[in-house]
Design a protein around this nucleic acid. Sequence first.
DNA 1: GTCATTGCAAAGCATTTGCAAGTCG
DNA 2: CGACTTGCAAATGCTTTGCAATGAC
Lengths: 152, 152
Amino acid sequence: MDAHVRRLESLVALLKEKGCRVTPQRLAILRVLTQSRGHPSAEQVHARLARQYPTMSLATVYKTIALLKQAGEILELQFSDLGNRYDGRRPHPHPHVICTRCGSIVDADAPLLDDAAERVSRETGYAIAAHRLDFFGLCPACLKKDAARKAS
Amino acid sequence: MDAHVRRLESLVALLKEKGCRVTPQRLAILRVLTQSRGHPSAEQVHARLARQYPTMSLATVYKTIALLKQAGEILELQFSDLGNRYDGRRPHPHPHVICTRCGSIVDADAPLLDDAAERVSRETGYAIAAHRLDFFGLCPACLKKDAARKAS
DNA sequence: GTCATTGCAAAGCATTTGCAAGTCG
DNA sequence: CGACTTGCAAATGCTTTGCAATGAC
């Protein structure tokens, strides 16, 4: 069984435990969130469901995301320029790489930041609970377009 | 001469070089941005200038910030829930620690992320130009309030 | 049958933009 | 003086909320 199917089922189980109803809309939204590697926005999740669920409301997408956020089962990457992006596959902090031209977001392997969190905690007196590490630059596709433009 | 005064003057010089006018409003905004350790929002910058410049417009604050952003002379920390915060003192990437209760933001010392950027670049094919490292948790003041509440 | 959830529309916020009036150089 | 800047107000874009109708259990 694929990992994302298992994850989907664990999220459905979680909703049931909490006494939440598992509606077709929620199920569809969870499916998109657990399967998307691309860190979609709420808008993009909604768009992907538009054909199959023509009456699906963007508000419902936001409400379902809020539910998952509360449960700590989704990672929210806040950007004021790109809009918020969501990672429903790996809810725990891990580094991301963001293209400053096209907005694409990919995962990176985790540099060892857990001991850094402890160091920062000692240094500042904050009780560190989470972190966020983003790298910004041009993605391979945008780099290629740049090279092509320069060559012409 | 204090470091922030030197920084203020270098920003003024930069504006002149670019052919921008150094208006009293811009000067005041630069002064707040180069002196604030607290990573203020545009709103907060505006509020701090309200007494001295009663007609100061929030739009002018935003426009001045945009100018500095273009010049790479201000660090913008995007948060969709707190609103964007600005660091005009140290425009180059460095780690921040954010209180998830009261929103206070302080600087942390930089764990060595420059070689990490190179590693991520090799790993993903992105040309990394910048990064952002945030730690989230409760600040000492909020922790103290929690302890007091628990004790009562 | 109940009560949570949906979908629409309206409201909310932070930020940006258009433009007439003002002012720096 | 002329071009750039200001300040107001309107517009924008993302997200949240109110509420009547719907549907899961």
